[in-house]
C-alpha cells in the first residue's frame, strides 16, 4: 500500500470546533493535500480541495454566502456538494455538472473537526476520551508525525491509544485528568497537535489544561531546539 492510500483511508483531527466558525473558511494541510475547510452559516463543515476548478484560486480565500462558498477571484458559487451553481460573468448560464470541486470526508465529534481524504473510511473516527471530551488548544510541531509521537511519549509520558492518538493523565486543576493528544500529520518536517480534555465543559479545568499544553510546547521547543 502506498503512503498516499494509507493517509487517504485515515481520519485526522485538523482542529477544534472553533478552528472554522460559521460563515468562515480556512486552509488546512494533510500529507499530499491542501484543503479548504469552511462552514456554512447554518454550521455544516466541509473540506474541499483548496483549488478552484476555474483558474486555481485557493478556495480558503473564498467568501461564505449562506450555504455556498464563493471563490474570491471571479465569484463562482459552489453549493455544499461542491457543484458550481453560479458564474457571475455569465449570470444566465446554468453551470454544467462537470464544474465541481473535489470533496473530502468530514466528521464532527468531541468538539473536534475530523477530515479524511477522499470518501474516507466507512467507520467513524474513534472518541477523543471517555468522559465528555472537549477541545482545549492546538499547537504546531516542528517535526513529522512519527517523530511527534516519540517526542510526546518521552516528554509528556503519553501512551498511544489509536493511530495518531495518545493519552496522558497529568495533574490539572488539582486532580489527575485524562488528556487526549491528536497528532495531525502535515509533511516530513511539520505536524500539529490538538489537545482534548475529559470531564465535560468545565472552564476552570480547561484553562489549566491550556496552561499544561503551553508548558508542554515550551518543553518541546527547548528540548528539540527545532522551533527556535
Amino acid at each position: 500500500m502506498s503512503m498516499r492510500q494509507t493517509e487517504a483511508s485515515a481520519w485526522h483531527v485538523v482542529g477544534g470546533w472553533n478552528h472554522v466558525q460559521p460563515g468562515a473558511a480556512c486552509r488546512v494541510e494533510l500529507p499530499g493535500a491542501e484543503i479548504a475547510l469552511w462552514r456554512t452559516e447554518a454550521g455544516a463543515v466541509h473540506a474541499w480541495d483548496n483549488r478552484c476548478p476555474h483558474r486555481g484560486m485557493r478556495l480558503s480565500f473564498g467568501i461564505v454566502k449562506g450555504d455556498r462558498l464563493a471563490c474570491r477571484y471571479h465569484g463562482w458559487h459552489y453549493d455544499e456538494g461542491g457543484q458550481c451553481r453560479f458564474i457571475p460573468a455569465h449570470p444566465n448560464l446554468d453551470p454544467p455538472d462537470t464544474l465541481a470541486v473535489a470533496q473530502h470526508a468530514t466528521h464532527e465529534q468531541d468538539e473536534a473537526i475530523w477530515v479524511a481524504l477522499g470518501a474516507g473510511p466507512t467507520e467513524p473516527p474513534p472518541p477523543l476520551g471517555t468522559d465528555q471530551p472537549g477541545f482545549c488548544r492546538s499547537i504546531p510541531l516542528p517535526f513529522g508525525a512519527d517523530t511527534a509521537a516519540d517526542v510526546l511519549m518521552r516528554l509528556a509520558g503519553a501512551s498511544p491509544v489509536a493511530p495518531r492518538l495518545m493519552q496522558v493523565r497529568p495533574e490539572i486543576g488539582g486532580s489527575n485528568r485524562t488528556v487526549t493528544l491528536a497528532v495531525q500529520p502535515i509533511d516530513e518536517t511539520r505536524a500539529a497537535m490538538h489537545v482534548f480534555l475529559d470531564g465535560g465543559p468545565k472552564a476552570d479545568a480547561r484553562l489549566a489544561a491550556i496552561r499544561w499544553t503551553v508548558g508542554l510546547r515550551w518543553q518541546i521547543t527547548s528540548e528539540t531546539g527545532a522551533a527556535a
Partner: peptide, 13 residues
C-alpha cells in the same frame, strides 16, 4: 497550465 483539462474556462476567458 497550458493543457486543457487542468482548469476550466468559460466564454469570458
Amino acid at each position: 497550465p497550458l493543457s486543457a483539462g487542468m482548469e476550466i474556462p468559460t466564454r469570458a476567458d
